[in-house]
Amino acid sequence: MIYTAGVAGTAALHLLKTERELNVHSVFNNGMNLVSKTGSLIFIGTDKNGYFPFGITLDPFSTKKVITKSRPQDKITINRQEIRHKDFSIILNQVKEYRPDFDFHLADIGLLRENLKQIDFSSYADSDFSHEKMKCLLDGLKNYSPELESQLRYFIGRGNGLTPTGDDILTGILYGDALNKFIDDRSYGLIQRLYNEDITTLVSKSFIQLALNEIFSSRITDLHHDPSVETMNRLKTLGSSSGLDTLYGIYKTLNQE
């Protein structure tokens, strides 16, 4: 069976140009991950959670078929505009490219900060990601404090799911930083180094590595075009808590004391 991809992120298209062979890494509800020998990731699945820089979207019917036929470790070959598995092909000839959105300067930070106050973050107060923990991390990132590495190791990979909560919060912090720079250059280097270790899921790793280059998924970048509560609520629906975790990271970053 042949399926047609709808939208593909720039990072995914780049990987398809440079790789000839991938493997199925994991298969889950909304799609699956393919991984290269060097650990780069492509997500193939529905656009339920918006568009990702390393994502390729299929319609729900095709996604269901593709994930039914795929098992971890299955070999995938890349042939120009075709992703080929032994039981199906995904063709990219009609694919629309999802390009990174770098229009951070368009953001109305005041309104964003104001509207974020309408989101309920009370569940974090007594969690592993309390106000105090967040303050220490943000201060550490800003001043490159000696404790930063242990603080980052505490956050990275902490929590369950495809993207643990600690990583999602860090994505939010990096987005907040893209809007309003505050992180010390040495802190970026440290984040980069830690994420090269296998201390979180491959999906989180892919998100953070792109976020360090100011590349985010569409549900996040929508915020600098429309900082309304509706846009935030759309981001909130991402994953079971990923969207809210990201918003929490942005909220804390933009409201630093």
Binding site: F28, N29, G157, N160, I199, S240
Partner: peptide, 29 residues
């Protein structure tokens, strides 16, 4: 999804003869 893992942990804790159980992604944290 984290919800699925949370529900799974809850379910395992309800199994008779299980003192306690936990399911998580095995990141260092």
């Amino acid at each position: 999804d984290s919800i699925v893992l949370m529900l799974l942990s809850n379910k395992l804790n309800e199994v008779e003869g299980v003192n306690k159980a936990q399911a998580m992604m095995a990141t260092p944290a």
